[in-house]
Every structure is written in C-alpha cells, then in structure tokens.
Design a protein around this nucleic acid. Structure first.
Length: 556
RNA sequence: UCCGGCGUCGUCUAAAGGCAGGACAAGGGACUUUGAAUCCCUGAAUCAUGGUUCGAAUCCAUGCGCCGGAACCA
C-alpha cells in the first residue's frame, strides 16, 4: 500500500470534484490568474496564484495569465512586466498570456447586441444624478428617465459614443436590469463609460472603455475558463456576471470565491502599498520590508517557502488574519535545510588572546551545514586578535548566562575554549577590549573535561572583511495597522536598522547578490542588490528562534 | 434597517450524523561545539438557545456577532 500523504483538499477542490463527477465541464479544468496591472503583486496574490496554478496542475488543466486592463488611467506596462516576472519567480508558468483589452471589439459587439435586445440603454445622467437614482443600501433605486429610449436611438447614441461625439463622462451605457434589486450591482449597472485616456496596449483607439463588470465574466467565457476563482468581494458581482453571460447566450464558467489573505503587522491593499512607495516611506516596491513578491524576494525569501506558506494557510471563505510568524516559520524551515553557515560579527568587540602567538594565522575546519553533510566543510582563519559579538559579553551577567563574563569560560565555535581574564575600558567606562587566554588543548572546540555551555561566533581581526548589514523588523507596530486611525501612524520607526563595519569571515568576499547564508546564532541573511565590488550589503531575512531572549524577557 | 457571506484552540485550518485532529504560537523537558536545529511532553476550541437523533461542530429553527456591498475602480 502506498503511504503517500493525502492530497490536500479544500472547498474549491471539492466543488471541482463534484463537477467532474457530474460531468458539468466534461471533466475539464481551466483556471486563470487575472490581475489588474495597476500595482505590484504581493503575498496575497501569491496565495491566489498558488490556488489558480496549483489547481490547474493538480487536475491536468491549464491556467492562463490575463491582465484585466479595463482602466487605462491606473494601469502601466511597468506593472505588466513586474507581474510576469513575479509569477515566474514563484515557479509557475502560464499557458497563455492574455489581455482583456484584446477583447474590446468583441465586448463592444456584445454591448450592441444587448442594446438590440432591449437589455441596455444609453443614459445621460451625470455622476451625481446617477448616484442619487441608485438609491441606498436600504432603499430601492429609481429608474433613469432615459431608460425607455428606443433601441434605434440607443444604438445610434452608443455608436456616437464610440465615435467620440460626446465629452468624457457625459453619457454611459447601462444594462437594464432592476433598480429595486437588493444587490446594488443589479441596479442598471454601467457597462461603458466615455474616457479619453491613453491605454498602454490599445493606445488612443478607444474613447469608451468597458467597466470591469462588463469585461470580466465575458473574458473568462471567451477563454473557456471552467472555474473562475476570485476573492470574496466579488461574490455580489457573480449574479451580474451570470446575467450578462445568459443574456449573451455564451459559455458560463463557475465563479468560486475565497477569503483573501491578511497578515499581522502588514498592510495588503494596493492603495496603501502604493502610498508607502509614492510617499517615500519605504525605498520602493521591492523594499525588503514590503509584503510584495519583489520585496520578499529581495529580503531573501525563497519561492519554495512562499509556496509552502500558501499551502499551510489553506483556503476557505472565513475572513482571517494569518500570524506573520507562520510565514517566518516557513522561511526558517527552508533555509535551515539549505543555507550555508558562516560567522559574522554584527557589533564587534575586540578580543585579544594573550597567550596565542603574535603574527600566527591558523586555519580551522568548520562544517558548512549540520543539516546537510553533503554541504562539506570550509577553513576559517584564527589569530590572536579577534572580534566577538558585543552582546555576548556582560560585565555583570544575569542568571543563566552561558556567554562571556569576567573570569568565565566560553567556546569559540570551531576554535578553542577561552577565558576572560581582564576587561579594558575607555575613559567613559565603555568596554572596548577583552583580554583572554586560550587552552591549546581544546583546538576545534573540544572541551577537556570541563562543561562549557556557551559557544560564541567570532572572526579573526586581520582577515575579516567589512560589510553593511540591514536588520529588519515588522514595518508596523500594530497587528492590524490603521485599526485605530491612520495606518501611517502605526509605521514602526525601528523597522530598519543599518549596521556598518560588521566583520565577516573572509570566505564571504565572493558572495553574489541573492546568495543566502545563516550567520551563526543570529539568523538568515541575503546579499542585497546594493552590493558592489568593494561594498557588501546584507539583508536580514529572519532571525533564528532566540530562546535566550525569551528567558531574559521573563527575568524582567 | 436591504443584499450577500462567514462564526471550531491565541492564530490559521481539518473533521460530509459516530474519538473535535494538524500546523504556527505558548509552556515544560531531553539533546546540543549555533540558547539554532531535532526529539518528547503539556495546556488550549465547536458564537448562543432551543429542536431532530441512540448519537450533532455537522441537520432544522430562532437569536447574536463579524465581514463585504451604494466609483463612470478592480
């Protein structure tokens, strides 16, 4: 018997299974990922991408990429390019690359067809009038005074709209449905508006553009999409899409809605992310603190970890906010298995091994990854003058302190057991140097009889290379930014800390942009694109779990 | 108050009338040349009230709560 893990299931896959049993789509499964190219993709889109592409792959179907580009004022080729790059990076390949704008002519013909059927009319109501005629959530709307124009008049007017005979905003084409409907989307919704805007693909060919609601369902239909998977806010639009499809008599996909992803300490709306970028509150769409795919990529997240995350959060209709620690757990998991261990001292404190010969440099052997024997070993130089992490020394150590303190013994990873003999301070009383002794018999870190609980990372002073290291924390201080007012006010002033003069073991000299490492005892770090030949820059992907920090916090 | 949707450990998510399970988080322990990783253990939930049933998270009823919906945005 096979013991393969059961394939994960969710309510969407159950619906598809049911369709396959009943033969509704002849066993066919075709999905699509339909972004509007008006911003960069974020981790919430990654969830949708994993669902859309994952389902198609699982059922042996296809998944298209379609840009829903129906609002030229907000869309841009830059976004199209970034969307494609991010999807590929995540590890997915679409079957066809499509654009709603490719269907403009067909959509226009369908609009004329609805006019001819008496199911659409040209309305001259202004924006304000139209709004007041729409009614409210509680009260029904009123029919437009233009609702009963003849088919011939509507057709003529609509053609003249296309021909550019009327000013922007002066007229709309509306579907004739039901102004009393509880679902506001059905209150004679706008199908076309006049808008003289340059479109990134169709240029100035059109001065009328279809509304998203008049494009989305038909686009899916044209493409033969069987399962049109989208987020919850489009649930109220499904009856409208179905109305258009039925009125037109064309293939009807099944729309299925799921809850979008929210993450603690994160904002996810495109509007807010755009504001962070435009107002210079972050360094760009790919700022490593951003939840954008490109931000996560620059930060050092792997595609595998993001896909794993998407799998672990599941798919449901319940509104939910996932703990960002789950995402962090996924990248730790992945990098723990794959990242090469190196030693890097972020805040250096000088250590002199007084009984170690001056001018000598010896090479010590260090394993590259205890999780992966195949990763091999490397040599790390050791000498009399070293740097250790400043926070690894306490003059007055608290209880449970395993690290260095006056008179204390500690192991230098892969090297020797040392003892702190004397503390050197400057005029202001700041500790500037530790004078230590070492036990030559402990080479490699082998404790001789004594129990040494603390093990520190270190680098030899003369061979160390310098680097800049950027430490990141959550971009926001509140779990739900903006909950108590403006989300900008919840920005974390400590979300970026830049350290310079960090000391790295010399093997890191040739690290390439995008390379990821575990800095022993500190976390995972990724070489930032700001790196140039004489200036290394690292981003902290995520810290290691820090049990000591928790103990100390509890001690108060 | 109209339309639609949703309520399961702190969080996310399973359980299709039959032992409320998993993951993250939390707490404890073992191990440790990373206070990492790994391993073991513990605590922790069915919105409420009725009903149907031998048996209800699941079916029914009534409440309550939360989310979305009134761009010529998507």
């Amino acid at each position: 018997m096979s013991t393969a893990a059961p394939t994960p299931t969710d309510f969407i896959r159950e619906i598809i299974d049911e369709h396959n049993r009943s033969g509704r789509f002849d066993g066919r499964v075709r999905t699509r990922f339909p972004p509007e190219p008006n911003g960069y993709l974020h981790i919430g889109h990654a969830k949708a991408i994993c669902i859309d592409f994952g389902i198609a792959a699982q059922y042996g179907g296809e998944c298209n990429l379609r840009m829903d580009d129906t609002n030229p004022e907000k869309e841009d080729q830059e976004y199209v390019d970034s969307i494609k790059e991010d999807i590929r990076w995540l590890g997915f390949q679409w079957d066809r690359e499509l654009y709603a704008s490719d269907y403009y002519e067909q959509l226009y013909e369908w609009a004329e067809l609805l006019v001819e059927k008496g199911l659409a009319f040209v309305c001259d109501l202004s924006v304000d009038k139209l709004r007041s005629y729409r009614g409210s959530l509680m009260e029904p709307g009123r029919e437009s005074p233009y609702r009963n124009r003849s088919r011939e008049e509507n057709l003529g007017l609509f053609r003249r709209m296309r021909a550019g005979e009327f000013p922007d905003g002066s007229r709309t084409l509306r579907a004739k449905i039901d102004m009393r409907a509880g679902n506001l989307n059905l209150r004679d919704p706008i199908m076309y508006r006049i808008k003289r805007a340059h479109h990134q693909r169709t240029g100035d060919k059109w001065c009328i553009y279809p509304m998203y609601d008049f494009a989305h369902g038909q686009s899916d239909s044209i493409e033969g999409i069987t399962h049109s998977i989208c987020t919850l806010e489009f649930e109220d639009h499904r009856p409208l899409y179905d109305w258009f499809l039925q009125a037109l008599g064309i293939f009807a996909p099944q729309q299925i809605e799921f809850a979008r992803l929210n993450l603690t300490y994160t904002v996810m709306s495109k509007r807010k992310l755009l504001q962070l970028v435009m107002d210079g509150l972050v360094r760009g769409w790919d700022d490593p603190r951003m939840p954008t795919i490109c931000g996560l990529r620059r930060r050092g997240y792997t595609p595998e970890s993001i896909r794993e995350f998407a799998g672990r959060i599941g798919v449901a209709k319940t509104n939910s906010t996932v703990d960002v620690q789950l995402l962090e757990s996924c990248i730790r998991d992945d990098l723990n298995r794959r990242a090469k261990r190196v030693m890097a001292v972020l805040r250096p404190l000088k250590v002199v091994i007084e009984n170690y010969p001056e001018g000598t440099v010896e090479q010590l052997v260090a394993e590259n990854n205890p999780e992966d024997a195949a990763a091999g070993t490397r040599e790390v130089p050791f000498a009399r003058d070293l740097f250790i992490e400043a926070e690894d020394f306490r003059e007055d150590p608290p209880k449970q302190w395993f690290r260095l303190a006056p008179g204390a013994l500690v192991r230098l990873k892969h090297a020797y057991i040392i003892r702190c003999e004397r503390v050197v301070k400057d005029a202001s009383g700041r500790v500037v140097e530790l004078q230590c002794s070492y036990d030559p018999a402990t080479r490699g870190g082998e404790a001789q009889g004594v129990k040494v609980r603390g093990t520190l990372h270190w680098v030899a002073a003369t061979t160390a290379i310098d680097a800049e290291v950027r430490l990141y924390e959550h971009l926001f201080t509140q779990e739900n930014p903006g909950e108590n007012g403006d989300f900008i006010a919840d920005l974390n002033p400590a979300s970026l800390e830049t350290l310079t003069g960090c000391k790295l073991e010399p093997g890191l000299r040739d690290a390439a942009v995008g390379d990821r490492f575990q800095f022993l005892r500190q976390g995972y770090f990724c070489v930032d694109p700001d790196t140039c030949p004489d200036h290394l820059v690292f981003d902290r992907v995520v810290t290691l779990r820090d049990t000591w920090a928790r103990i100390e916090k509890k001690q108060g």
